[in-house]
Computed example of a mutant assay.
Amino acid sequence: MARDASAYQLIDAREEAVDPIYRIGPFDVLTISVFNEPSLSFQSIPVDAAGQFDYPLIGTIVAEGMTVAQLTQEIKTRLDSQYYRDSRVTVFVTSSASQFVVVEGQVEEPGRYELPQGRASLLEVIALAKSPTNTAKLDQIMVFREIEGERHGAVFNLADIRRGAVDDPLLRGGDVVVVGYSSLKGAFRDFLTTAPFFNVFTRF
């Protein structure tokens, strides 16, 4: 597991290192409309697991990896080449299933969280999971990312990030965040909940 400077080299904290342009992926849901053509306008078209979908008149479109602008132009070009002179096509990503992170471990609400803009900082992702529990080990926040087909991991200190001592790294779709468990905090919590009386020593 990469730590300190090595962690930031792996999970680059610089905003410019993240592609700000959203690219369509498997299981995204699209809204596609063609002006004055209700038969070609749809509120909900799902992209399948292979990153493609079927569209009337022009058949299968491989959308994975395309930007909205590129997909719009692809549909327009294929329609205009056979059926229209100058079709007016509009495409929106209604639901982004491909851009999500998974948060596990010592947070109040572990789960899978969508990144509407395709990116979010580590603090923002932890906030989506309703913050760490009182038994979380804040200096052991692990981020796992697949890079060129291999899984890599980095460890960050959330307390240092919160006080501005280090950068808040940017995460991207597909990352997995695991918040570690502090056995000392857990034991102390158990002690407080089981101690019979205040001001009385008990075995700990």
Rank of each mutant, 00 (worst) to 15 (best):
D168G: 05
T90S: 15
F92M: 13
D19I: 09
G105W: 13
K185P: 13
E16W: 10
S81R: 01
Q82T: 09
S98P: 07
I11Q: 00
G164I: 07
Y83G: 00
P110F: 01
S131D: 13
D175V: 12
E148S: 04
H152I: 00
G111H: 02
F144H: 04
S98A: 09
T135C: 07
P20Y: 07
R189D: 14
M66V: 06
G51K: 00
Y113R: 05
D48H: 14
E37V: 09
F201C: 01
E109L: 15
L192D: 05
H152V: 06
E114W: 06
Q73T: 12
P46M: 02
Y181P: 01
V29P: 08
G174N: 02
F27G: 07
S39C: 09
E15H: 13
G174P: 06
I147L: 15
I126M: 08
Q140S: 14
V89Y: 05
Q52W: 14
A50N: 06
E109D: 15
Q9W: 11
S98Q: 04
T90H: 04
Y55Q: 00
R119M: 06
I21G: 07
I24L: 03
V102Q: 02
E124I: 06
K185W: 08
S44V: 04
L40T: 03
R189Q: 14
A17Q: 09
A127R: 12
L122V: 03
G105T: 08
D54K: 10
L184T: 14
Q52G: 03
V89S: 05
L170D: 04
P116K: 07
E104P: 00
A69W: 03
Y181M: 08
I161N: 01
D28P: 06
L171C: 00
D19Y: 09
R151F: 04
V143W: 02
V34R: 00
E15V: 14
Y83F: 11
F27Y: 10
P116L: 02
V62F: 15
S41Y: 06
E146R: 15
R151L: 15
G180F: 06
I45N: 01
D12T: 11
A69Y: 14
F42I: 05
Q99C: 05
Y22C: 09
E124V: 14
E146G: 10
A159T: 15
A127D: 15
S96D: 12
G180W: 03
F201L: 01
L192P: 12
A50V: 14
R151E: 07
V200E: 13
S81V: 14
E108I: 12
P132Y: 02
T135I: 15
D48F: 11
Q52L: 09
S81W: 11
V176E: 13
R23I: 10
N157Y: 00
S182K: 02
D167C: 03
I58G: 03
V34A: 02
P46F: 01
V68N: 00
S6P: 10
Q82R: 14
D167M: 06
S87Q: 05
D19V: 12
G149P: 12
V47G: 00
T193I: 13
V177F: 04
Q9Y: 12
F156T: 02
Y55P: 10
